[in-house]
């Protein structure tokens, strides 16, 4: 059992949760994730470690309510408990002094990119961050991102805040302005990561994406998280989650993530129904 120390919404449907997990807090590195099982009948879901406090023995995760498990997690408050947390899993981000590094986050991907952006800054890179959201109220971690960035940009799809447009437009602008970019990290929805890969491909800029296939164990035992990279099968939980964006087969990833759509819908509806009932009581 792990106690939740604090839980606050950063935006609608996106919650920042700090949980007791002393061993993980001590060990984790940027880019790694945990598998969480909310309750005894829960599924195991992967979530990136957004930060940790080794002294306090806590880790922070930032969760977007998507389906049953993430919404159930987001319904928890400080003082509540979570059944299981295991980690840190996955290979840490490869960090070095690249020169100019651009960190791109889309939606909750901003939270996943944040710890790596911090590590890139600490390694002495000139860090540019571009964070995209659908609209103003979905922008998260703005002050945190600003603090680690030499240049920070925000884009919104509807133009309600920051630059009107997609993250890729800003990236293209930066490239066109003649800036040398040595490294790009892109984390967010699959179409966004794919689009970033296409922007940087002609310029041969080293580009890394963090993949989010469906996982079960997170330890390399089941092969459910397999992704196709450079036409080879890789297990994202042990060989990743970060891979060379120019070699990833995004189409397979998109399709494989649809595997349980009807079941996910069924679960989510049942959960929503239960919440309704408990509100009425």
């Amino acid at each position: 059992m792990h106690k939740i120390v604090s839980a606050i919404f950063l935006a609608e449907n996106i919650k920042k949760i700090e949980i007791e997990a002393p061993r993980i807090a001590k060990k984790r590195k940027a880019g790694q994730f945990v598998m969480i099982r909310v309750g005894q009948t829960g599924e195991r879901i992967p979530l990136t470690i957004a930060g940790s406090d080794p002294e306090k023995g806590t880790i922070t995760i930032i969760v977007q309510g998507m389906g049953k498990s993430t919404r159930e997690l987001n319904s928890k408050e400080a003082g509540d408990t979570i059944s299981d947390i295991v980690g840190p899993l996955g290979l840490p981000s490869h960090i070095e002094k690249f020169g100019t590094a651009v960190s791109i986050g889309g939606g909750v991907g901003t939270a996943i990119a944040y710890p790596t952006a911090v590590a890139l800054k600490e390694a002495g890179n000139y860090v540019i961050t571009i964070n995209g959201a659908r609209s103003k109220d979905l922008v998260i971690l703005e002050p945190e991102m600003k603090a680690v960035s030499d240049e920070a940009y925000i884009t919104t799809d509807d133009g309600s805040y920051g630059i009107h447009g997609f993250v890729t437009q800003k990236l293209q602008e930066l490239i066109d302005s003649g800036k040398t970019i040595d490294y790009v990290l892109a984390i967010g929805p699959i179409p966004m990561m794919k689009a970033v890969a296409e922007v940087t491909r002609p310029y041969n800029i080293k580009t890394v994406v963090s993949l989010n296939p469906i996982m079960v164990d997170g330890t390399g035992m089941c092969g459910g998280c397999r992704v196709s990279v450079d036409n080879e099968i890789k297990f994202a939980c042990v060989d990743g989650p970060e891979f060379d964006a120019h070699k990833v087969d995004f189409k397979t990833l998109t399709d494989r993530n649809k595997l349980y759509l009807p079941e996910e819908r069924q679960s989510a509806e049942a959960f929503a129904h239960k919440c309704q009932l408990s509100k009425q009581v």
């Binding site: 599924e43 164990d217 069924q266 679960s267």
Partner: peptide, 18 residues
């Protein structure tokens, strides 16, 4: 087998794993 045995997905949706 892991989904069925360990995560008890044969009891979906009472267990969350499909």
């Amino acid at each position: 087998l892991t989904r069925v045995n360990l995560m008890k997905s044969y009891q979906f949706p009472d267990n969350d794993t499909p």
